[in-house]
């Protein structure tokens, strides 16, 4: 029972309290804000797997988000694909690129990997910008149909919100199961010392490619959701600055922490909006808050140690056996 309470609370907040509040406010702007927050939660969760859990600093995450968005945009506007198909297809296309990029780069040592992802991210951006016959270049792709998967009309603000919330919850479940398991322990071992992990019997390169494939799949889904809810995609939405924004969410929330990724995404999307009243100075204020967070809470607002402890205690993920008095390991 204790293990079921916390997941129920998360579900209740996501599917009952929040949508009820948003409907009562009756504002399209707030719904849009909730949608963008959910999309960025998926992005920060997926980057958390690569960077926080497996310890691979990636500076090109927005490129996979962009690939997903363009895949959904092109499939739905040119080929008339249903949103029920474009969303998983966007994930697959993005994961395909993820694996293709991971194969040669996963043998690189940390900082070289970061620079390689930076370069590849920029290449993808430049391709989106200049391959005019395919992507319409800087004009972007408009008239992307709203969310009507398999004939269900979810194009209303509430309908879209529910679909996004359900998919974000699904992505959270994927990241939770990967990170909060012995598979996650293997990934954390790569982060801590990949040579040593190798000597302990872990196929290091294969694990890195797997986690990159999973994370880029999720980023592609986030891109498709962005394309369908915005109705328009433009290369500028998937620039290096977006990668850095996602990285900031992960770091401010807490590297390696799954709840931290959500806290970081919510904070960095909602804070600039909440500060709209103070005008352009708000960007400075957000920067200052990020700076102070890192300075005083280098482990993040919701650090990994606290996060793993919470998941073990409240989400029933721990192993209980032997003479251990405390929750340890994974179920």
């Amino acid at each position: 029972m204790r293990g079921a309470l916390a997941p129920l609370a998360v579900a209740a907040a996501l599917f009952a309290i929040l949508p009820m509040g948003l409907s009562m406010a009756g504002s399209g702007y707030l719904f849009r804000l909730a949608d963008v927050t959910l999309i960025f939660c998926i992005l920060s969760l997926s980057m958390q797997l690569i960077t926080g859990v497996a310890g691979l600093l990636t500076l090109g995450h927005a490129a996979f988000y962009g690939i997903g968005a363009y895949a959904a945009a092109i499939l739905s506007t040119r080929l008339g694909f249903d949103a029920g198909l474009t969303i998983p297809a966007a994930g697959l296309v993005s994961a395909l690129f993820g694996v293709l990029i991971a194969l040669p780069t996963m043998r690189l040592v940390s900082i070289y990997f970061a620079v390689a992802t930076l370069g590849l991210g920029e290449m993808i951006y430049v391709t989106l910008l200049n391959w005019v016959s395919f992507t319409r270049g800087p004009l972007g792709i408009g008239d992307i149909p709203p969310l009507r998967p398999f004939g269900f009309d979810l194009s209303s603000p509430l309908g879209s919100y529910f679909l996004l919330a359900a998919l974000a919850a699904l992505c959270l479940l994927v990241v939770h199961r990967i990170a909060h398991s012995y598979y996650g322990n293997a990934l954390r071992a790569l982060r801590e010392d990949d040579q040593c992990a190798d000597a302990m019997g872990l196929p290091v390169v294969r694990l890195k490619i797997e986690v990159f494939a999973i994370a880029t799949f999720l980023a592609g889904i986030a891109g498709a959701l962005w394309a369908h809810t915005t109705g328009y995609v433009n290369p500028a939405d998937f620039r290096f600055a977006e990668s850095i924004l996602i990285l900031a969410m992960v770091v401010v929330g807490g590297l390696g922490s799954i709840p931290g990724a959500i806290v970081g995404a919510a904070l960095l999307i909602l804070l600039p909006e909440a500060l709209r009243a103070i005008g352009e100075v708000r960007i400075l204020a957000v920067g200052l808050i990020m700076f102070l967070c890192i300075l005083f809470l280098p482990k993040g607002l919701f650090g990994e140690v606290a996060a793993l402890d919470l998941v073990r205690r409240q989400f029933g993920a721990a192993w209980r056996g032997g003479s251990a008095a405390r929750p340890l390991g994974w179920r």
Partner: peptide, 23 residues
Amino acid sequence: IFPNMTVFDNVSVGAVGRLGIGP
């Protein structure tokens, strides 16, 4: 050792390595 992992989780890596695990 893996400094930011618990003692239990450190040791579990050896068992995972031997038994193998898939995503």
